[in-house]
Design a protein around this nucleic acid. Structure first.
Lengths: 216, 216
DNA sequence: AACAAGTCTGAAACTTGTTCTAGATTACCG
DNA sequence: CGGTAATCTAGAACAAGTTTCAGACTTGTT
């Protein structure tokens, strides 16, 4: 409960973000922390709103004022974790030679991080794909963060082309869906690795100056 | 990939399918029909177990004996619908010239079918991606059906190579995830089309030996 | 300092998925 | 047929997400 000075400062990109007082910010942080902790223990089902409220030291009604549903809460938790991951990944950029290699390497690094907390991954990813329209803005934020991570890994010179953005979208699709199959035990880690590497080859198809990717 | 999914040898899709009496088969059909009907009205949330039971004319306990959870029920519903679609698609095979074109065309046809019942699509796809391990066998069956549809569309001569199967897996990932983004209003129909076409280009990368251009 | 508006708390209530139980029905076997 | 095991029904009961409400507490204003 020590107030760890997390700069965060990530201005919530919402159109009408009401300014939170310090205690409110602290409450929000406690809630997210409790959410992640419970999720780490037992995944989606273990994140029970009453328990989150108790662990965070707030009333149930307050929890719902901050996060209007369990899915909102878990998507916000994912936002939080992704932000961590983004800064972590930035410290050691991928070493691959081609954009495709770098993206695959980055995603595999993220995947390894998720493997360390599979239950947390379960809670976040299930919430993300289960989210309905009422959570779209938040899910979109997560999506933009993911896109940013991938574009970062590609290490482009200028702005990405439309074709590259399409490839990134498809990579994101594959990433989410492959995670789901892994989490539900229908795909092995090796399988996910193959899928990621396979889809990343799409990037090579979209290189602006793709003269001869395959030597004749 | 776990080894528990036996092909059952029997040929029918159900592993260890206990022989159902006629009345039981009828009950099962009534339940699936009620499920699809309610789903068509209001999507995932509109499929309420009590209502399904009532509409199907069975007791709640019986419904749970046939389908041990709402997700099981909806995944079975999807299995049912997919089977329809498979036979429908087979009647008019895609006309594209390359495998990639044919797969894209097939998926777009399926997509158009889903657009006619967006609520039903919502219920089925959300259930599919929300399913946890306890539904893995059923989800796996759906996955195999989808794979079969795609392989059918590719129109291969022999058995698919490992690379081709990887591509198909990635296409499936993209298909599911793109549907999710469309259903939750975060992607337009046009966007989904682009994603499908983009990912289908992966197929061209996996042609066994440049077999497309010059066949001896 | 006092007031008004907004926020937080604690607890109960409501909804819907899921489980359980006792008795009625049905299917199967001799 | 008669009997027995399995299945089905009706309904209560339980679990967890969500809503609601009265009252206590904060915050900002004058």
């Amino acid at each position: 409960m020590t107030a760890d000075a997390k700069a965060a400062g990530a201005g919530t990109a919402h159109p009408a973000a009401p300014p939170l007082t310090e205690r409110q910010e602290a409450r929000r942080r406690r809630i997210l922390h409790a959410s992640a902790q419970l999720a780490s223990r037992g995944g989606f089902d273990a994140v029970q709103m009453r328990e989150v409220a108790e662990a965070a030291g707030v009333a149930l009604g307050t929890l719902y004022r901050y996060f209007p549903s369990k899915v909102h809460l878990l998507v916000a938790t994912m936002q939080d974790q992704l932000q961590h991951m983004h800064t972590t990944l930035r410290k050691r950029p991928p070493a691959g030679e081609t954009p495709a290699e770098r993206v695959a390497e980055t995603l595999m690094r993220a995947f390894r991080a998720l493997q360390r907390e599979p239950h947390l991954a379960d809670a976040m990813v299930r919430a993300l794909t289960f989210a309905d329209r009422s959570v779209s803005p938040e899910v979109d934020t997560v999506s933009r963060l993911t896109t940013a991570i991938i574009l970062d890994a590609m290490g482009l010179d200028g702005r990405p082309t439309a074709a590259q953005l399409s490839a990134v979208r498809v990579i994101e699709h594959t990433w989410h869906s492959a995670l789901i199959t892994w989490l539900s035990g229908r795909a092995s880690i090796a399988q996910v690795k193959i899928d990621i590497e396979t889809v990343c080859r799409l990037i090579d198809l979209t290189a602006p100056e793709r003269a001869g990717q395959d030597t004749p």
